[in-house]
Design a protein around this nucleic acid. Structure first.
Lengths: 251, 251
DNA sequence: ATTACATTGCGTCATAATAACACAGTTAAT
DNA sequence: ATTAACTGTGTTATTATGACGCAATGTAAT
């Protein structure tokens, strides 16, 4: 709940919210940043409202920045959710009481909300989960162990992941999810984790290098069991170019 | 302007609209259904507002149905547009006067609007453009000859077409754009028109038949110059199946 | 009727992309 | 020294794609 919105709801776009599915990658797990609601045993996606004088994309960037401290991140709008009854039971007395929202102001929150979904890919190690208040819990949670979420947030999360899986074929990823220097097995694990399936190591290498966005470094990973794998980095210029023009042409 | 909204704006989601990019195909042209605004020399996408008791998808179906008389059509949400100033100059005195909107009610229309974009593919011959009032003009216009549009509708239209081109690689199309029986050159022209590029006739046949959604009929097109081409129809079951599962797997 | 022409139907061939797999090199643990 | 687990660099078979060739069919011109 952003500061000041209760008293100044007239400065926000009515009935419209932003919800962000923030993906990170760690320990070969695809993580999602979730917030524990302080008033019940459910979790939620980090979200926010849209100030009247802010573009929706800017509002999404604000949510992401507030929650992770990160800027200049890959952030993409993927869908808008607007079932009539998606939030009709949400701002009930329990929640209003928790936030100490006066009955009159509560009407604003109880109105029907349509929410715009964005998903982000961020570097797990650089993104520090940031609480809005002391009673809140915000955590990286393995996407396979997502607890019960409020509203239709599970549906939003699932759609984000489905979109990401499709867009994996249309654009390169990894730049915001891996450290600057990374190994081929790490990159492959990222793909495998997102897609939830095994890929052939040798075919993966060929396909990913053919895209032409990787620079093979003259350096090997140190302190590692078994044979030390080579390190790679992204060629930022080519990466951006491919991001813009897309991968698969198809027809 | 839907009937009754001026007096009953409190029954609609504030600051939220739907805009539909309705594509049809005729004379080897990709057509878009556009509405001439009665108050100035610009055109607009068919759009509408979201009743409080309607899902956004339903509201989009309503817009499409009201404008084309068609139901059960391919309709897809592709993006939401929410720049702050996208409509700040739109509901000016000229427009308010035209619609005879009282100053007080006019505030509702002048507020900041976020719009959800849907695109539809419909059978040009079955979709009959339907006016809302006698002063309105609604027409199929070649997408290459789109006149000046109001607001950011050009941007919305462009994005719809870009999305359609991408989704062409992910799903089959044609079911809603061609008559029940059609020839291979007709189907190819559809693809060429959407993509705005020539495809090789023989390679197209191979690729499209390999998808397994076509039934080759024991019938040739009649009354046609040159050699009569064979007729095909879609195998609806397989078509739906491919629509659901997608075409290109990629990774 | 004959011929020219545009278009269709059904091929081929070379190349590129993909899937499946073989084998040797490196390192840590035993 | 041997083994297990992994990396690096291949090969081969299959499939998909891009670029064409050519005969068959029907219209239109002569």
């Amino acid at each position: 709940m952003p500061k000041g919105i209760i008293e100044n709801s007239e400065n926000y776009q009515p009935g419209l919210s932003i919800d962000c599915v923030i993906f990170g990658f760690h320990d070969n797990q695809l993580k999602v940043l979730l917030i524990k609601t302080p008033y019940e045993e459910k979790w939620s996606l980090p979200g926010g409202f849209v100030p009247l004088e802010q573009d929706i994309d800017t509002a999404a960037i604000t949510v992401l920045n507030d929650r992770t401290g990160m800027e200049g991140i890959f952030l993409r709008q993927f869908s808008t959710f607007g079932r009539v009854k998606r939030n009709d039971k949400h701002f009930n007395d329990l929640v209003l009481e928790y936030y100490k929202i006066p009955k009159e102001a509560g009407k604003w929150f109880a109105q029907r909300f349509v929410t715009i979904g964005y998903y982000a890919l961020v570097d797990f190690l650089k993104a520090i989960p940031h609480k809005e208040n002391s009673k809140e819990k915000i955590e990286w949670i393995d996407h396979k162990e997502v607890p019960e979420l409020i509203l239709d947030h599970k549906e939003i999360l699932d759609k984000a992941l489905a979109t990401l899986r499709i867009e994996l074929n249309l654009m390169p990823i990894g730049y915001n999810l891996l450290p600057e220097k990374f190994t081929m097995p790490e990159l492959q694990k990222l793909y495998e984790t997102i897609l939830d399936k095994k890929l052939d190591r040798r075919n993966f290498l060929r396909k990913i290098t053919n895209i032409g966005i990787l620079t093979k470094l003259d350096e090997k990973k140190s302190n590692v069991a078994h044979k030390a794998p080579n390190l790679y980095s992204f060629d930022k210029d080519r990466y951006e170019e491919v991001l813009k023009n897309g991968l698969n042409q198809g027809w």
